[in-house]
Write a protein that binds this DNA or RNA. Structure first.
Lengths: 212, 212
DNA sequence: TGTAGCCGGTGACTCAGGTCACTGACCGGC
DNA sequence: GCCGGTCAGTGACCTGAGTCACCGGCTACA
């Protein structure tokens, strides 16, 4: 599959700091794939051969332990996945899962080119440093939530974020899925959503959940 | 304060991949400080001007929220602090606290040299990538503990790690401190330590806690 | 048109852990 | 000696959340 002219132009704009030369090289050696919703692209224990950069769509990265999940972050357009980067570059196994949440187009950079690019183009490093510090900060935030907040606040903020990331005002999502992304049980979500509805924080419509 | 010849030699050995030229430059432009136990070196909201590399001793990095803390990681010799790196390089505020746990000698790299070093010496990047991926993995591990394990396991593993990091078989530590590093209350720790003592996992001696 | 499968809602129960209030042991200093 | 401080131990109690069992509603489809 080929990058469209529009995508090339968008990519150059988003990553201008990489310089034209490197960008052309990346485009030359990388491949584009289009993935349908719910495609698993990374699982725990897997070795990584390519590093994705999302062009369009949304990827969800999460941790899992005995069928209890926890959402770690979303990869939005122009972002990449540091777990792939880390695992790929050190030839280690992934510790997380990743799955597409929408129809998603990704640019896949071949892992064996990365070290040379990092060496010859210092700007490439800042791309990953940025991603790293962003993800690290997010993870810190997640920890604070787990430790310092109760479930209803976690649910509410989860919904708010999900809604902003997906760009939908009314979230069509199962209670079951909220539960697993927050690492808890379905009944608990049902109960608390009901409570939040009574408190006027959300509304549960047949089409989905509306945040007020 | 000056680096001792021994320290210079150790530093070169630990970071050989940086190359002699860069190492000399680092040594030239950085300063050494010796800090006593319990010196606070970073607090939330603070801006960062230097990036520490620990030469000897131990630094504890933790998050705090309304006098509830959570241990994030220890900086051991030859390691650095990515929160300083991130905050320093992007001129952002720190989101964590750091405090010395032992008498500690640190090498402080001036933040304004870092971008040039990163640009001219690609090997420098790998130092921070390594630190980043290490810390990120640790943080993931911490999250899994919070979410998937009960407190007694967390306490036990905390003691085991503390004991290995400090190199002490008998840990002289207050229940209060364990509580705050795990983000819980003193009574809870007392209760669970008693339980673990009955189960034969630890022993509480006047000098401290022994892990069996 | 029945039935199997998802989905959300509920009540009853359990349990881990946080909170409160108080105790007694062990200092150190004056 | 007494006073103040730190530290650990404990019982009573509360609460958030996980678990279990069971509905009833909707949908799809054979």
């Amino acid at each position: 599959m080929e990058l469209t002219l529009q995508e090339i132009s968008d990519f150059k704009k988003a990553h201008y700091y990489l310089g034209a030369e490197l960008i052309n090289e990346i485009i030359e050696y990388s491949i584009v794939t289009e993935l349908i919703t719910d495609t698993e692209i990374l699982r725990e224990g897997q070795y990584v051969k390519q590093i994705p950069i999302v062009l369009k769509g949304l990827i969800k990265v999460y941790s899992r332990y005995e069928d209890k999940e926890l959402l770690l972050y979303y990869i939005q357009p122009d972002e990449s996945c540091i777990m792939s980067f880390t695992a790929g570059i050190r030839n280690e196994q992934s510790k997380v899962y990743a799955v597409t949440e929408d129809q998603t187009r990704v640019l896949l950079l071949p892992i064996d080119r990365i070290p040379a690019w990092l060496r010859d183009h210092p700007a490439m490093n800042s791309l990953f440093f940025n991603q790293f510090s962003m993800r690290y900060t997010e993870l810190l935030e997640t920890i604070r939530y787990l430790l310092y907040h109760k479930l209803d606040k976690r649910i509410y903020d989860f919904l708010v974020e999900k809604s902003s990331v997906k760009g939908e005002k009314i979230l069509n999502i199962r209670h079951k899925q909220i539960a697993s992304e927050l690492g808890t049980a379905r009944e608990v979500i049902s109960r608390l959503l009901k409570k939040m509805e009574k408190e006027g924080k959300i509304r549960q419509l047949p089409e989905g959940i509306e945040i007020l």
